[in-house]
């Protein structure tokens, strides 16, 4: 029972990061119908920024905002250089473009920085600090991740519900053409969506990089996969669904890793995908259904 409770908390911690990543994917999908396979590159670029900063003596107090700022700027630059050129193109074109961005960013770091793993010091509390809750030893890291994620989700919700930008974003996600007819500027809302997506990726990236303590040219693949998967599980285009999907994915990974017998524990990822496949058989739309909006 203690181990189960421990695993649930660990799963929520892991799922929180996935939720932030998925939310970023969902925000962009909402306005552009772009399943952004370049989303993980925001963490790749931020990772190298963190490596540079830490090896130059910056403290994590400064590195945290740096990671977030770099993620937002990278997201905007990618939108400007790549996705703005293919607005209005087919979803297939958008998809290929996002793959292209992923490979280009990865290749740039491979060719002009290094193919080697670049290590940087993690803050000690991210791995070594725990606190006791009865018989449970809860990682401080998980606690911080869960709290920050909840605060970020509340903030994002307020942004979307209480501001003109949020209204425009939601309107665009529901029906972009009608939103434009109502005066919503497409450039503003799309760039805003990419900035918000970058912000969420930046916050997720802080935790991802604190845990990893390293980066490589392909560091973005794993977070991209988790974010996209969680967004799909939750229901593509649904912000609420993305969050649910993130938590579900994190919990599934930790619980399956713990429950599967040792002889097949190596198939954990496979079982996670099998569960996802089962979900899609019974609920192809994911956890939350979204009315299909016209793409930009």
């Amino acid at each position: 029972m203690v181990e189960l409770a421990q695993n649930l908390i660990d799963g929520l911690g892991r799922g929180s990061i996935y939720a932030l990543l998925a939310l970023g994917v969902a925000v962009v999908f909402g306005v552009m119908h772009l399943l952004n396979f370049a989303h993980g590159e925001l963490i790749t670029v931020s990772g190298y920024a963190a490596f540079w900063a830490i090896t130059n003596g910056w403290s994590w107090w400064l590195v945290v905002p740096l990671i977030i700022v770099v993620a937002v700027l990278t997201s905007l630059v990618i939108e400007r250089l790549a996705f703005s050129r293919v607005r209005g193109a087919s979803q297939f074109t958008l998809l290929l473009t996002s793959f292209g961005v992923h490979f280009v960013v990865s290749a740039i770091f491979l060719l002009y920085v290094s193919a080697s793993v670049k290590n940087f010091a993690r803050p000690a509390w991210t791995t070594q600090s725990t606190w006791a809750l009865g018989p449970l030893q809860i990682e401080t890291f998980d606690t911080v991740v869960i709290v920050v994620t909840i605060l970020t989700l509340i903030g994002t919700n307020l942004l979307l519900q209480r501001t003109m930008f949020g209204l425009a974003l939601r309107a665009a996600a529901a029906d972009f053409d009608t939103a434009r007819l109502m005066g919503v500027r497409s450039d503003t809302v799309i760039r805003g969506a990419f900035a918000l997506s970058g912000l969420l990726a930046g916050i997720a990236g802080v935790f991802w990089l604190m845990r990893a303590g390293s980066t490589t040219p392909s560091a973005g693949i794993d977070p991209m996969l988790k974010g996209v998967l969680a967004a799909l599980i939750g229901g593509l285009g649904s912000l609420r669904g993305a969050v649910l999907g993130g938590f579900a994915l994190g919990l599934a990974e930790v619980l399956l890793r713990s429950w599967l017998p040792g002889s097949i524990a190596g198939l954990t990822e496979g079982f996670v995908f099998a569960l996802i496949a089962l979900l899609f058989i019974f609920r192809p739309q994911g956890f939350v259904s979204v009315a299909h909006a016209e793409r930009v």
Binding site: E3, Q6, N7, D10, G11, G13, R14, Q137, E139, D142, R211, A212, G213, D222, E253, V254, L255, R257, S258, G262, A265, G266, T268, E269
Partner: peptide
Amino acid sequence: TQTYVWAADTDFSAQVNEIAG
């Protein structure tokens, strides 16, 4: 004997919980 994903996993919570026992 624990399993993990090489070059990817950096969160070993589930394995650590088991090892702790």
